[in-house]
Design a protein around this nucleic acid. Sequence first.
DNA 1: GTGGTCTAGACCACT
DNA 2: GTGGTCTAGACCACA
Lengths: 121, 121, 121, 121
Amino acid sequence: MNIIITNNTNQPLYEIVYEQITTQIITGKLPAQFCLPSIRGVALELSISVITIKKAWEMLERQGFIYTIAGKGCYVATLTADERNNKRIELATAKISSSIGLMKSLELSKADIISIIKDIY
Amino acid sequence: MNIIITNNTNQPLYEIVYEQITTQIITGKLPAQFCLPSIRGVALELSISVITIKKAWEMLERQGFIYTIAGKGCYVATLTADERNNKRIELATAKISSSIGLMKSLELSKADIISIIKDIY
Amino acid sequence: MNIIITNNTNQPLYEIVYEQITTQIITGKLPAQFCLPSIRGVALELSISVITIKKAWEMLERQGFIYTIAGKGCYVATLTADERNNKRIELATAKISSSIGLMKSLELSKADIISIIKDIY
Amino acid sequence: MNIIITNNTNQPLYEIVYEQITTQIITGKLPAQFCLPSIRGVALELSISVITIKKAWEMLERQGFIYTIAGKGCYVATLTADERNNKRIELATAKISSSIGLMKSLELSKADIISIIKDIY
DNA sequence: GTGGTCTAGACCACT
DNA sequence: GTGGTCTAGACCACA
């Protein structure tokens, strides 16, 4: 498991952590039944408050990415390839949707947007 | 000048106002030298604090979209068609860039993203 | 008499007008006894409020640069070459003094400042 | 960190604070990664409104002197000696430039200005 | 009338 | 506790 904190944006820390774990689960880098390291361990390693990590873990559980066994640890949930792909599309669509409104009011056509993406991807 | 406040997101008010004015200037809906209504006027009309509008106006001035004459009013700056187009691309690129990182870590190809955009635009 | 308004700074209009007239008197471009155009005329020509010009004229009179004959007009006062030179040095010194504090706290030496001036003059 | 408020001029409070912090960062009195005291703390200590301090802090962040981690604090940015020196020259040059126009219209030579500086520094 | 600054509160999200 | 945002007043200088 790899988490990289680069706080150049205003995104809250717990969201950064959450996003990185979800992408690793969706892309299969973290396999089903994988046992996540302890909250306290991650917090120490990243020099982040335990509470912040806890919040990320809670979001992961709420979204069905992990499950907790009290007293033992947190494990990556079992997701079918389809489920993972749906989550992938869902996440990506949500992210892009939030920009579409501005694009439209800037009177950028679909082609304009695609050309920008081709430039920066 | 039209400003519509729909506070369904967590975006700060001053940023919503800022974004709407910039798009109207960029798309030419607000012509050069246009005298914006007074800060207090806008604040009253939108039922928003004077200071919040002031902050949006300051951002507009810093980005070169308007200029202020103290005691007189605020005016839309003169921008060439090229300058306006650059701003347009700049804004759009910045917005999209912030999503590209996630797309890549989700292992979505350029084609995947374009297909999503075609769906939701 | 020439007044050029370029409102790229935050300096109040009346101060801009005041400064331009004084420099023209000090450098002899406006000779003693020269009859200034009417306040209303200047205001019209520069598209500035009469009140603003009046304020500048009052400052000029208070500083002894002009004198008013009620019902006739405003005239440039008679200043000896020495008096004019003193005003010149006075104005320049005042302007520079306001920057010296910052220079010192930036730990710039006298030589540093002089080198900057040589660069930008 | 030392801030001294001497409001004998018309300079806005937030600008006074901003200028003092920048000079302390530029001259190395505030080292990189130094954690600035909390906005509310400074506000209390100086008997200044929180918002005024906030405005100064925002200017500092915009100019790259500090960076903010919401919920944690504000830290002095890491600047190389070169960067700090450039900022120093930049600030000084900007300040002096604003006086040069008047000097020229007063027909003061470069030598005249240098002689004035030698007098008052 | 305008913008420029400032105050003294407040609530929220994040650590 | 921290910063981020916002409100509802106020006074001033400028036009």
